[in-house]
Computed example of a mutant assay.
Amino acid sequence: SADGLPLIGPTAQPGVYLAAGHGMWGVTQGPITGKLLAQAIDSGELPSELRPFDPLRSMQRPHVPMMAKWPRLGLKP
């Protein structure tokens, strides 16, 4: 993620949840992430412990096209 924090929780696509970005800590943080995300899916409410990791937190920033970040890729927007 842009800020280095994991992405955990519901996405903009209904029914799609994300639990990613743990880096090398995935093995140790994965079980608690899974438990909290399962609670969120089951209850329909995001636990307060997961709010800082909301996958949509970065959507508040202006979008930077991929070409602006990596112009050498030769991709067309």
Rank of each mutant, 00 (worst) to 15 (best):
A2I: 14
A2P: 13
G4S: 13
G4I: 14
G4Q: 13
L5Y: 10
L5K: 15
P6M: 03
P6Q: 04
L7P: 00
I8C: 10
G9Y: 05
P10K: 10
P10Q: 13
T11L: 13
T11D: 11
T11R: 14
Q13I: 13
Q13W: 08
V16H: 11
Y17Q: 06
L18I: 05
L18W: 06
L18D: 03
L18A: 11
L18C: 13
A19W: 04
A19Q: 11
A20M: 02
G21Y: 01
G21V: 00
G21M: 01
H22Y: 10
H22P: 05
G23I: 05
G23K: 06
W25I: 09
W25S: 08
W25Q: 09
W25K: 09
G26P: 12
G26D: 09
V27W: 08
V27T: 06
V27A: 06
T28S: 01
T28P: 02
Q29V: 05
G30L: 04
G30D: 02
P31G: 01
P31Y: 00
P31A: 00
I32L: 00
I32H: 03
I32S: 02
I32T: 00
T33L: 04
K35D: 01
L36W: 06
L36G: 02
L37H: 11
L37W: 09
Q39A: 10
A40K: 15
I41R: 13
I41M: 15
I41G: 14
S43H: 10
S43L: 05
G44S: 14
E45H: 15
L46P: 15
L46Q: 03
P47A: 02
E49H: 04
L50Y: 12
R51M: 02
R51L: 03
P52R: 01
F53H: 06
P55V: 00
P55E: 00
R57M: 03
S58M: 11
S58K: 09
M59V: 07
M59E: 10
Q60R: 11
Q60G: 12
Q60V: 08
H63S: 01
P65S: 04
M66H: 08
M66F: 06
A68E: 11
A68K: 15
A68N: 12
K69E: 04
K69Y: 08
P71W: 14
P71Y: 14
L73R: 11
L75T: 02
L75I: 07
K76T: 01
K76M: 10
P77D: 07
